[in-house]
Deep mutational scan, measured.
Amino acid sequence: QLNLPENTDDWTKEDVNQWLESHKIDQKHREILTEQDVNGAVLKWLKKEHLVDMGITHGPAIQIEELFKELRK
């Protein structure tokens, strides 16, 4: 059970990391997002292209984008 703020805009980069870990996103990809200071407010704007530009491969980038879309519903 994750204990994250209800509003994703309030998520810290550590919260984002924890959420991605719960969805089995590889540590190396989570570390990239942490290094790039991606918090919840930033995550909602990220598209696959942004994630790929940061060095995340296409498969996980699509997965992260789709997971966040599902979360926002």
Rank of each mutant, 00 (worst) to 15 (best):
T57A: 15
H58Y: 12
L4F: 09
L33Q: 00
M54V: 08
W11C: 01
E6M: 09
L4A: 04
H23N: 03
T57I: 14
W45G: 15
H23E: 11
V16Q: 00
N7C: 08
N7L: 08
Q18P: 00
I64T: 03
G40Y: 01
K24V: 09
Q27M: 03
T34F: 03
K24Y: 14
E6K: 05
L2E: 11
T34Y: 09
W19C: 02
L33Y: 03
E35N: 04
D26H: 03
D26R: 04
D26F: 09
Q18C: 11
Q27W: 05
Q18H: 03
N17P: 00
L20K: 00
Q36F: 12
Q18R: 06
K69M: 13
G55V: 14
A41K: 12
Q1R: 04
N17Y: 13
V38T: 12
I25Q: 05
P60F: 13
W45K: 15
N39Y: 02
V16H: 00
A41Y: 14
T12F: 00
E31Y: 08
W11D: 00
E14T: 04
V42T: 14
E6D: 10
L51C: 03
D37T: 12
G59Y: 15
T8R: 05
T8L: 14
F68V: 11
G40I: 03
L46M: 11
W11S: 01
N39M: 02
D37L: 15
I62G: 15
E6F: 02
K44A: 13
G40K: 04
H29W: 10
Q1L: 05
T8S: 07
V42W: 14
L33E: 03
L2S: 09
E6C: 01
Q36V: 12
E35P: 01
E14D: 09
L4M: 07
L20Q: 00
L67G: 14
L51W: 01
L46Y: 12
P5M: 11
D26W: 06
T34G: 12
W11G: 00
F68K: 08
V42M: 15
H23A: 07
M54Q: 03
T12R: 06
Q36I: 09
E31F: 05
A41S: 13
V16N: 00
L33D: 00
N7Y: 08
L20I: 02
D37F: 14
D53C: 08
V52G: 13
K44M: 11
P5V: 01
L67F: 12
E14P: 00
G59S: 15
K44V: 07
D15W: 00
L20M: 05
Q36P: 01
A41G: 10
L51N: 01
S22W: 03
I32V: 07
F68N: 12
G40E: 02
E21L: 04
L46Q: 11
N7W: 04
N7T: 05
V42N: 14
